[in-house]
Nucleic acid binder design. Sequence first.
DNA 1: TTCCCTATATATAAATC
DNA 2: TGATTTATATATAGGGA
Lengths: 87, 87
Amino acid sequence: MGRAKLNLKKIEHNATRHVTFAKRKSGLRKKTNQLSILCDADVAVMLFSSTGRLSCFSGDKMYAFFFFFAPLNLSLSLSLSLFLLKS
Amino acid sequence: MGRAKLNLKKIEHNATRHVTFAKRKSGLRKKTNQLSILCDADVAVMLFSSTGRLSCFSGDKMYAFFFFFAPLNLSLSLSLSLFLLKS
DNA sequence: TTCCCTATATATAAATC
DNA sequence: TGATTTATATATAGGGA
């Protein structure tokens, strides 16, 4: 998309990668919300950025709570999620 | 998108809603995978369809295992997820 | 319901500020 | 870092088989 076709491989330039991450994360959130509403589904998304920063979101139809543990540095992590449907 | 602009509300026609769900789920999977590769991030997605069917997927950079419990009919559910980064 | 097709709506890369 | 602006790549609604 956008001006140029993009190869599917890691964007090496740091600033560009971060910008793309922010844009696509918000795009994913939008798609998630649309799918949830249009199709009466519940969707939860967990994201770990390349710097290890974590973010989560879910469709408006439910409350979601996420708990994370990353005991062995970052190669293994554990997540406990609680979903409470609003309906 | 597509031929007509779509209102952001539940698609009432059953067959149409199911078709849209399948299409958008695969779209979401694609976006998830792209984000994961382009931005060197890890992403996990959990989906509950309107019929209660569950599906999960994650970027190629990690192995993800999902365990679900829905003790109180379907209004509350609990998920335990294990992520193992391949790198 | 599952593939194609294709006209449009959207997402978004790059550029500029 | 953000915001805004395009030009272009993609996603996908609706329809037909």
